[in-house]
Design a binder for these strands. Structure first.
Lengths: 336, 336
DNA sequence: CTGTTAGCGCCTTCAA
DNA sequence: TTGAAGGCGCTAACAG
């Protein structure tokens, strides 16, 4: 159905080598011949077979993007940022949804490698040993996105989790709150630890004692927020504010508050994290920390492309992007 | 870095053809030889290069999945359904996010074709002419998902949009409502028309007159619902219920209601469509029509795989999956 | 049952 | 500057 380089060569009355040369500008070709070839190429609408090309060149102009959970609305803008940058440079993104399943992740990673993708963006706030191993063994350009590599073995891009959490807590303190709970993620995640540290430091800096009973470590989803909320709001001693590790957790917490007969923000202020699309439409609208998701995506792509181009000369970078506090309805000033 | 079939042949002291045969079971091989080869394969961890294989076989064990908008939370479960089925059969899904941009769609479609994907799932409730053309010209197995092909040129899988909308309206009528607005999508979409027809027919069947002033045709997102809501709630004559074309529109409508000083569901009942993940967590929780999204995905994969296997013997199917009414808080019975 | 050989479609030396 | 020829890694006749 499709034409091959042979067809072009025959019709242009040149050798296939020449056709290859005009298409790749790999070696000088006389203007007349080049034109003759291009004419045939245009007429036929010829396109070199990328599979054959990949077999020789060991490159595919493809970038694999591993996303842990396509349900995470955070991802939408991130992907757009990536695609925009890649598209401009002639690369295209292939999305792989892993559901955070280690087996699936490895499956995709190996598939991508075998298909000679030119690089991969790993969107994960908590890289697993298997992932680290893979990239240690395979020398494929990679960017760890939404992750800060404390060992700095891989290039990564992220916000400053510590500072963001510090700022969120400080914001609450600025509103007059002195008793602030923290709904965080699993303590095995480096990200969780960083955010927890930011929270604790803010407390310390303003002379507030940290209370273990107000710390809840579960997951990043609605259910986790709900569970933690139900436990918290059943306690005798209650905080006036809750700092959450994600907007989803915040939404769960708000639902728990409602089900426990405490109202937001009148009885308790609840602070989100991420600023997902629904955050502004939720009721009460979430006051939250906005991550520059689009820029995180675009930045990942830029760094990856740079790495691909510079190869062994590339020096590992760790880019930090700014966050921002978005004030809405779920937090109020405490005056008493 | 990686081993090739030659390495295996040399180490097992057989020809490369034999190695190929034991790996593909394409021709009988004596048990002893088979074992000898497999031993080497296992020791080396050898894996045939899929690119070389694709070049010959013109198949890749890859399925392209075109999604119009990765932000649509509807998609999450859909993708899981697809992946589950494909994985079992040794296929893997490649997600392509198009943002409904026709140029991007065509770019991906051509890329996928050139990469010899074995089929594609097109998730779109409103296929564009360019897409139709592509599949008319290229004879690549495809399933149109979330779309009902009235010309039945392509296999497709969907719920019954007409009936679902009919049921939603009938449900509202059953609650006692007689004045029901309809927030639908662009009237160019066949899906929108079907749903609108269902709404109108339900009205007619229960002797309720259709009112043009209560029909708003915009898009499927929050902003559209909000705008339509602001217009509607500013009118003198107001309905007691609104039937929406998506949960996002319903959420927008609810926000508009709040901003207009009308409360949901006390003053007006609002019905969603889709049952996206946030629907149950939203306040008020959305009463809505649930689409069997996971099954839609799984079904797409099954139909596609069937089509790939049966090739020219495949007879076009059009599968309809059942929907379901989910009662929550946003609609109330009207008693007066 | 097994090995030899000829491609798949392309890029790239090596001569001319 | 151009063409011939040799692969990339694999499958599929064709012989034996």
């Amino acid at each position: 159905m499709s034409f091959t380089i042979k067809d072009v060569a025959r019709l242009a009355d040149v050798s296939i080598a020449t056709v290859s040369r005009v298409l790749n500008r790999s070696k000088p070709v006389s203007p007349e011949v080049r034109e003759k070839v291009m004419k045939v190429v245009d007429e036929l609408g010829y396109n070199p077979n990328p599979v054959a090309r990949t077999l020789i060149m060991k490159e595919s102009m493809l970038i694999g993007v591993l996303i842990p959970d396509i349900a995470n609305t955070f991802i939408s803008m991130f992907v757009r940022g990536i695609e925009k940058e890649l598209f401009q440079q002639g690369y295209t993104a292939l999305l792989c949804n892993t559901n955070s399943d280690t087996k699936v992740e490895l499956h995709y990673l190996n598939l991508l490698r075998e298909k000679y993708v030119d690089g991969v963006v790993l969107l994960t706030s908590a890289p697993k040993p298997e992932q680290i191993d893979f990239f240690n063994n395979h020398d494929i350009p990679v960017i760890f996105s939404s992750h800060t590599d404390k060992d700095s073995r891989f290039p990564c891009i992220n916000i400053d989790d510590y500072q963001a959490s510090y700022d969120a807590t400080k914001y609450l303190i600025g509103l007059g709150h002195r008793s602030i709970a923290f709904f965080c993620g699993p303590m095995e995640y480096y990200q969780t630890i960083r955010r927890f540290d930011g929270y604790k430091q803010a407390l310390a800096d303003y002379g507030i004692e940290f209370q273990t009973k107000w710390l809840f470590a579960r997951d990043y989803n609605i259910e986790s927020g709900y569970k933690s909320g139900m436990e918290l709001f059943a306690q005798e001693d209650q905080p006036t504010a809750v700092c959450c590790v994600s907007d989803m957790v915040a939404i769960g917490a708000i639902r728990a508050a409602e089900d426990s007969g405490v109202s937001v923000p009148e009885d308790v202020s609840i602070m989100g994290f991420d600023d997902i699309p629904i955050a502004g439409a939720y009721r009460p609208a979430l006051t939250t920390i906005r991550q520059p998701v689009y820029d995180l995506g675009a930045g990942s792509a830029q760094m990856l492309l740079k790495q691909i181009r510079e190869k062994d000369n590339y020096i590992r970078e760790a880019k930090i992007l700014p966050h921002e506090i978005i004030e809405r309805e779920s937090c109020r000033v405490l005056n008493n």
